[in-house]
Amino acid sequence: MPRPIANEPSAADAPPSIGKIFTAFAMIGVSSFGGGLVAYLRDVVVDREKWLTGDEFLGALEIGQTLPGLNSTNVAVIVGRKLRGPRGAAAAALGLILPGVAILIVLGLLYVRFHNNPDVAAALAGVAAAAVGLLLQVTLKIGGRSFLRPKDLMFIIPTFLMVGVFHVSLAATLFLLAPIAIWLNRPESLKKKTPAPSSDPEP
């Protein structure tokens, strides 16, 4: 179900300042331990600051998920742009990213200095093993019933084999598989009639 993302401000209130946008997103960037950023974003953008309605947020999320890049930073860019144009988008994305980067600088320096220490190596082995579990769980959760649908497995398995096992470049894999996958999901109206060009926006 398509939702408007409102290029124009919906509420006619004065838009928040750049500093305010940065701070709001930096609060998410500093507190969102353990992932699940989209939920944090929704809390702040919709419930606390009321910058977007719930539907507008879902609209932004749809775009953020369709376009390449991280869903969370994409949503931040869209919300920031809507509030304050280019500078708002930059403030939102940087606010979200920078706190974690600061922490990673510390973690990274500690890692570079101590990763050969046997104690630290043992702890890191545990951490890495756990991260694999986390990644697998997210994959299974997002994949859900796709793993049981032949139509989806037709793409899941080749993608996994090409990129994961045979190291076919991601660009080539997407170039080969994406058009087929998108065509198989083409709009109903095109399934009976002859194919029409894809760049045919409705008014």
Partner: peptide
């Protein structure tokens, strides 16, 4: 309608990539 096609078409590819 193509927006939906892109999103649904890419979903299983994303899952395959995550698995990889």
């Amino acid at each position: 309608p193509w927006r939906d096609a892109v999103q649904r078409g890419l979903a299983p590819i994303t899952i395959g990539l995550m698995l990889a």
